[in-house]
Design a protein around this nucleic acid. Structure first.
Lengths: 352, 352
DNA sequence: CTGAAAGCGCTTACAG
DNA sequence: CTGAAAGCGCTTACAG
């Protein structure tokens, strides 16, 4: 498109009657020795203004071999609404620190060579660093061409000296179930998913932790595996068909979409939420959790915090964050971010 | 992060025993005259492979004064799940054509100077072009520093020689209402929103077009303005409290979230969808439209198509697209993309 | 067929 | 206090 010739440092230098060195020093505000007197500075600034000078970032990149940009690679996170806040938080922090974000969605890119191409392209652009984000919490095999400083978000690299930022799933699940226990429930179901192995394992462990803490013996009949979808939640209605003395008075759902389905299943059975059945979800999914009737109590995934910390880590700005722990892989480290509970109206004490 | 010294053209040249010119020509596959013989080419390629050579895009950018990147600016589109498919389609087309996408979310950036900063930064990176995307269809005042070739998506620039890509709202609304008319409905309500002026005006016009086409006189009592939220949809239940002979047998909703609320309002009144009330939405919002009970018939916003065409336009690859029409502003042009109807199960013939 | 050289627009030792 | 010069890693006329 356009082919406007922008003015360069040289143009400004000529107009101000100084050398390009001086212009560069002034415009970049370098203070190593207060060398240039204010009168000269002023002259340079005026010339730059008159010529509407904008530095050519590309030239600067080449010279400094860095580009003030960060590559944000995702499996398909940018395809899903879930993690949108993560991306925008990342971008905000980047901008705030003078960096731009290249967003690359690997999507269903199959083939290691294509993945490698994408990474190579980013590297060819001299990015300061790379973020690798996943849609849902999982363990990933890091593509071989990934540089060491890469930060993984919402996933953990199976090997390599990488940093990973993940949600504290297990403690969040425990907190969810504890909320139910504190409200007086003892027969608490877990409507689970198994297709998302890491989250499944961790949330189940948290569920069991909380029960154990309250000396409640887990009843296997109350642990139902279904799919993490609305339809899967409707199918979870099977828990409500259990005999009266076994039937759960509260159900912790693997995610909000299942909770949405479970609402429907309860309604079909003439059960009132939370009067007859308390429900807690997971995700705090936008447009769902807050919009259900009644609004759903759920655990919020810390997408914003993860996106922010990821960029801060890449830029080595995370010095005030104390949560890094050594990870299983040699040289790796992990940050687990809390998932706060969002209390709404789907939990009440059990009746009778 | 990392400080690996990557090998350069010079390294490859030395290893292959040729000049950097030759290496550059071979590696870029320039064919202007089949100059370099295959044996030399092979030698160069081998050397490059052995040294794991990757071109430095930054140097190339400087030399060619273009950067094989595109700036994707949005008001807050990347903050909302609505238009995620737009972003990922844009990125896919860009990648496919050797370009990277810089994503910048203006968010609630107030102040023209900050907007200007964002645009300047992108321009400083020598982007090939700019896309300006909006969350919802509107008319925008283009920031003054925007270059002429900028493409507006899901919005229209109020002035300037820009290209804009927008959904064909009016004809889509007409199609939605026509669907209801064809099913036999005559008392068709429009649950409208007024906070989104452009879409409001266009969808209302489409609603009226369709009625007129079928010689149905619009009844002002059936046009209710509310908010484009679930709560606004619940409030739309007022339409259902109209006297029996006035009450609509079908309602066209401004968006899917309102439809979600209207489902709830209908249920509270013991009305069955679609048995007692047919409903058509707008947006085909993920996780909502398809997940309602019954699944919602709605108009799909062409986010994918808009994102794709935007990048193609910036790269002048849209030569096979014949839909550009002159726009109101001098030198501007507009592409209106169709919104296909997604038929699901919320429409049935009126009873009685 | 191949290479020497200029130059893209900056930054940064270094010299004066 | 200020400037001349080198150089970042490429591409591309141009010459041989």
């Amino acid at each position: 498109m356009r082919a406007i010739r922008r003015s360069t440092l040289k143009d400004v230098a000529k107009r101000a009657g100084v050398s390009v060195t001086t212009v560069s020093v002034v415009l970049n505000g370098r203070q190593d020795g207060v060398r240039v007197p204010e009168t000269t500075r002023e002259r340079v600034r005026r010339a730059a203004g008159e010529l509407d000078y904008r530095p050519n970032q590309t030239a600067r990149n080449l010279r400094q071999s860095s580009s003030r940009s960060i590559g944000f690679i995702s499996d398909e996170v940018t395809t899903t609404p879930f993690a949108v806040p993560m991306l925008s938080a990342a971008q905000e922090v980047a901008t705030h620190n003078g960096h731009l974000l290249f967003v690359v969605n690997l999507g269903h890119v199959v083939g290691a060579d294509l993945q490698r191409d994408a990474i190579d392209t980013l590297l060819a652009h001299q990015v300061t660093g790379l973020v690798f984000a996943c849609m849902y919490h999982q363990e990933v095999e890091p593509p071989p061409s990934l540089p060491d400083g890469t930060v993984f978000v919402n996933c953990r690299a199976k090997r390599g000296p990488f940093r990973s930022i993940i949600p504290a799933e297990q403690s969040a699940a425990a907190a969810a179930v504890r909320l139910l226990l504190d409200t007086g429930h003892r027969r608490i179901g877990f409507l689970d998913d198994t297709l998302i192995p890491v989250a499944h394992r961790l949330r189940l462990a948290g569920y069991q932790d909380a029960l154990r803490e309250y000396s409640v013996v887990p009843d296997p009949r109350l642990h139902l595996c279904s799919q993490a979808t609305v339809a899967g939640g409707v199918a979870g209605g099977a828990l409500l068909d259990l005999p009266q003395d076994v039937r759960p008075t509260a159900i912790f759902c693997f995610n909000d979409r299942m909770a949405m389905g479970l609402y429907r299943a309860a309604r079909h059975r003439g059960l009132n939420v939370p009067g007859d059945l308390s429900i807690v979800g997971f995700d705090d999914q936008e447009f769902i959790a807050s919009e259900l009737d009644p609004p759903l109590t759920t655990m919020r995934l810390p997408h914003v915090e993860m996106g922010r910390l990821a960029i801060e880590s890449v830029l080595d700005l995370d010095t005030d964050y104390a949560g890094w722990q050594p990870g299983p892989a040699k040289g790796s480290s992990v940050a687990m971010l809390e998932c706060p509970v969002v209390e709404r109206e789907s939990v009440a004490p059990p009746t009778g």
